[in-house]
Amino acid sequence: MGSSNGKKAVMAVTGAVMVLFLILHMLGNLKIFFGRDSFNEYAHALRTLLEPIVPYRTVLTTLEILLVASVVLHMWAAISLARRAGKARPVKYVAKKSQAGGYTTHIMRFGGLTIALYVVWHLLDLTFGVVNPKGFNSAPADRMVAGFDPSRWWVTLIYVVAVVLVGLHLRHGVWSAFQTLGWANRARNKMLRLGAGLLAAGLVVGFLAPPLAITFGVVQ
């Protein structure tokens, strides 16, 4: 796991965990279109999953631990690979012209960093309610609707920027994971790149629909 390839594999696997989480998270968010009750019931169901076989919040807490571990490992691998890359090029070029768009380094490294900062804000807003007008002791749907109230349009704006960055991150990241795990090849590449693009686009649309609907008054 200490080699550069090992760290890449860690990034691929932890990235996959996060993508699976994002898909479920997005589907859950869409419940808001079926009304506040539907959304609250869903939030409640997450906490009581497999009850009474296991105590309250067992499944959710387990998933949260897995997710936090993935985030930490993903960031650890990214940082140590970025540092290795920095050391591999101590003298910079006077002139450097990207031949492949120069997309990846910016979107992946700085984009990743921005996403991490955003996640902190996002948790403070909708999970812990610290920066949410409704506070922690409120129904999840109330926090969501109040959080994206038209008067808080800037929150929606932050959210839109962050979600688009996630999409761009995944457009490269998902394909890259297949490449890193050695599952990409010439025949599959086209399909994998297309699939990564579609998945990213689907997540962006799915994540943007609820907050935009709330800010523009479609969902009350």
Binding site: K8, T105, Q179, T180
Partner: peptide, 13 residues
């Protein structure tokens, strides 16, 4: 001391 690959594709270009 070479860096790791981020699949940017600059190399193949």
């Amino acid at each position: 001391g070479f860096g790791g690959c981020t699949n940017t594709g600059e190399c193949t270009a």
